[in-house]
Design a protein around this nucleic acid. Structure first.
Lengths: 211, 211
DNA sequence: TTATACATACCTTTTAGTCGGTATGTGTCA
DNA sequence: TGACACATACCGACTAAAAGGTATGTATAA
């Protein structure tokens, strides 16, 4: 593999490979159990490269949460669920899309930010806060569609768009916890079916049978 | 503090204190970040006592998950939400009870099993499985009430009692993740409001305003 | 010739786990 | 009833390995 040049500093450089390794290894074994040597091995770089790019392991943890945020933001922005002109349809398409991408082993589809935030709550507040930014930043993108759908359809009710957006995240995160505990992706998918049914109820639309 | 005798081996012994310490410390900083010395300090016992009672740190992890399971099982069995004669009322009382006990800092009300299962998914399958037993064992207790409520009220729908029981757990676990990430208990409580509304919808009963 | 991006050997602290020892309760037999 | 053997519960210094982090050297690009 060729040395990265200054013209293309992003392409396959050690920093990016380490962030990708963190993303994958941490989702499987947790942040604290993922040692610096583990991460270097997974990224196929040396310790020198690690501490050249990151001042400490915790600094990598923060950067990994930020990297995860950028990566997922770009991924969901490019996703097809934005296409429907109707806001509620976009919301339901979002839920369907989240369900559709739950494939493979739990570490492949679960959320790095949720895993790390829960684990490092008291031991690394910096990492926790970076994870919170990722989670709650993502809910904000959904909130706009929910608010639009409410207006379009004149929906009342004692709930807010922000709260439903956060609930959607909670169902996802909780589904991931169950999927990891039971080592079964279906546990995450079935909660999204319940969420779909709940949202249709809030907006007074009929359920669809096949999902 | 007096030495425990063979007549009262359970009272305040080192083993129990270590399990309680694990319950509290792990929920705050995660399993891997909780060192044996941390746990001994929190339990006010020595390392000798630790390794007298547990063959390894992982063995303590498994025992802590089992201890958590026993403790929460007893707690929820004794809880008042079982009182209503009507099954649906018991379910809604359960959700209200789960909401009511979300007080204090996140490590005080979040779930040890959920935290550990997510973290040790690949690093300690033994612990993960012990956590799964606790989580899915608890859903089973709720499932009976859901099934009873369905029969009593003749509710159809393409969902099962088992799946709704698991969804309830997912909403709880997800709420805990958000509460830890945002360091705000209200994030867990608000998802339970959505869950309450969803369950009332499934059983065709009106919402109550104040919760 | 200077800055960047590594590589490698090394250092220091922390970590899980060990080991010999002590205190105390318990069963047994004279 | 007391002496003895034995088991359980615990103590705390020690150890080996693993951990995060450092120091120094080198190749390449600008």
């Amino acid at each position: 593999m060729s040395r990265p040049t200054k013209q293309s500093p992003e392409r396959g450089n050690a920093r990016t490979r380490l962030l990708e390794a963190a993303r994958d290894v941490v989702r499987a074994k947790g942040y604290a159990a993922a040692t610096v040597d583990d991460l270097c091995r997974a990224a196929d770089v040396t310790k020198g490269a690690f501490f050249h790019h990151f001042a400490s392991k915790d600094a990598l943890g923060v950067a990994a949460a930020e990297f995860w945020n950028e990566e997922t933001t770009a991924f969901f922005e490019a996703a097809p669920y934005h296409q429907p002109a109707d806001a509620l349809e976009r919301i339901l398409a979002y839920v369907a899309f989240r369900k559709a991408i739950i494939v493979g082993e739990p570490p492949e589809f679960t959320c790095l930010a949720g895993t790390m935030a829960q684990e490092v709550y008291a031991s690394s507040p910096d990492i926790r806060d970076a994870c919170a930014l990722s989670i709650f930043g993502h809910t904000a993108t959904l909130e706009a569609d929910i608010e639009a759908a409410r207006r379009e359809r004149g929906i009342a009710g004692d709930w807010t768009a922000a709260s439903l957006a956060r609930h959607t995240q909670a169902v996802l995160q909780g589904g991931f916890v169950l999927a990891k505990a039971g080592n079964d992706p279906e546990l995450a998918r079935e909660s999204l079916d319940h969420l779909d049914r709940y949202i249709r109820h809030l907006f007074h639309v009929a359920e669809e049978d096949a999902q």
